[in-house]
Design a protein around this nucleic acid. Structure first.
Length: 421
RNA sequence: GCCGCCAUCGUCCAGGGGACUAGGACGCCGCCCUCUCACGGCGGAAACGGGGGUUCGAAUCCCCCUGGCGGUACCA
């Protein structure tokens, strides 16, 4: 088995393309076949090395490795010309104002065998003699892909359903070339939440955007696999191995799917929480360019959905954050000064080691001593330390911050309160 | 216009003649947990587009309609 993924080198790998790549890859890996890459563009202008590299980078990020390629169609121009001449010589094609057209019979039909949709018949009367080469001699898409697929011994062509009506043309070219067409499979298209074709308007619609938004490749892979395919009635989480093992074209859906970023976020959060803290920290360090993030990472982990959530949630552990004035005004009320002062004293007096249990005991002690509600101590403390009313658990936060830094920030807050009175 | 594809909760995925009182997940609502926000737990609302057939029986098979989508390029 040889499957090929043939992206347009626009420099952007959109979600639909990523899913096509994933399905091809899963199929190849599952059957012990080859996953080959080919740049699908006969136009020299767009096929820049930079654009191609961006696609490859996105595939690498998704951990979809390839066995061969990428082969550029532009570089295959002379081979395409050779086959065009052959069709001309065989009388299967003819020249029309400089362009070359394939002869399509008026009668009959071409039947395409699709692994997902079954047999599809295209009546010949609805297909004109179509152009296979421009008047400058260069090959057009339908001819180029057909020649390339044949030369590369491609056995399975899996692509988006938008290519369905190209398929009879390609099958006819292959037939005219005296070859058997490969197995075709057309995946349902992907739409945005508004039912329209997926595009930049729909948030993170490309792999690159997803990556920048802090999604994990394993979560993206899992989520994308489920857009148009499902193992059974209840399985949602599948490792790459399980995906390779369980994937089959026969279970691919025929109807279009809608890309729902909310569900991806949820799934990403689940994957994030299963990461070892060190692993999470390493990934965060890679995108923030900072080091020593492990303590902060493990504190923030339970509340993050994407890597991008880290900074708003736990940035205060790395460096002091500006105080949210609305939060300050809300929690710094009558009596907070005393509560914070006593909390500070308790923490200062707390014996080593500086642990979660010790900190919790000390702070709950303050609550009991003053006979107030827990939040009346914890919320002002939270704002004093983090600058916000939203943060990871207060005990973990204090522990991660360390005694010294906790006291520094507490004193700063107390200073501000004194100034105000 | 012509050709083709598709049609189950708002969304994704199951169910492919009787097991369907249509299942799971996201989201939504409620309750619980709780130091905030989350996580988690429990519960709830929520779908077979319409009409004809076939059949003892249809979400499932057939036809028509409607709707959505794709193509109809010397684009890919």
């Amino acid at each position: 088995m040889r499957v090929r993924f043939a992206p347009s080198p626009t420099g952007v790998l959109h979600i639909g393309g990523a899913r096509t790549a994933l399905y091809n890859w899963l199929l190849a890996r599952g059957e012990g076949g080859k996953f080959v890459l080919r740049v699908e563009d006969t136009d020299r202008e767009r096929s820049t090395p930079e654009n191609v590299e961006q696609i490859l980078e996105a595939l690498r990020w998704l951990e979809l490795d390839w066995d061969e390629g990428p082969i550029s169609q532009v570089e295959r121009a002379s081979r395409h010309r050779e086959q065009i001449d052959r069709l001309l010589a065989d009388g299967r094609a003819y020249e029309d104002e400089g362009a070359v057209r394939l002869r399509v019979p008026d009668e009959g039909e071409t039947v395409v065998h699709d692994a997902i949709r079954g047999e599809i018949a295209f009546p010949h009367h609805s297909i004109d003699d179509f152009v296979i080469a421009r008047s400058d001699g260069s090959a057009l898409y339908n001819l180029a892909v057909s020649v390339d697929d044949l030369d590369m011994d491609i056995t399975h062509v899996i692509r988006g359903a938008d290519h369905l009506s190209n398929t009879p043309r390609q099958a006819m070219i292959m037939e005219a070339l005296g070859a058997q067409p490969p197995v075709f499979a057309h995946l349902p298209l992907l739409h945005g939440l508004d039912g329209k074709k997926l595009s930049k308007r729909h948030g993170a619609a490309s792999v690159q955007a997803l990556r920048e938004s802090g999604y994990l490749p394993e979560a993206v892979r899992n989520y994308i696999a489920l857009l148009g395919w499902g193992l059974d009635a209840s399985t949602t989480f599948l490792s790459t191995d399980e995906l390779v093992e369980g994937f089959s074209l026969g279970r691919v859906s025929k109807s279009p799917a809608v890309f729902d970023e909310q569900k991806l976020r949820w799934m990403n959060g689940r994957y994030l929480r299963e990461l070892a803290p060190l692993d999470l920290a390493t990934r965060l360090e890679a995108i923030t360019g900072r080091t020593g993030l492990e303590p902060a990472a493990s504190v923030a982990q339970e509340k993050m959905q994407t890597l991008a959530d880290f900074w708003p949630l736990a940035g205060f552990l790395v460096e002091p954050q500006p105080t949210d004035e609305k939060a300050w005004a809300k929690v710094m009320t009558e009596g907070t000064e005393e509560r914070l002062r006593i909390a500070g004293e308790e923490l200062e007096a707390l014996e080593d080691p500086w642990t979660n249990e010790g900190v919790e005991q000390a702070l709950r002690g303050v609550v009991e001593r003053l006979e107030v509600k827990p939040k009346e101590v914890f919320q002002p403390l939270r704002v004093a330390l983090t600058g916000s009313t939203v943060s990871p658990g207060i005990f973990e936060s204090v522990v991660a911050l360390g005694r010294e830094e906790t006291l520094v920030r507490l004193r700063a807050a107390l200073g501000r309160l004194e100034l105000a009175t």
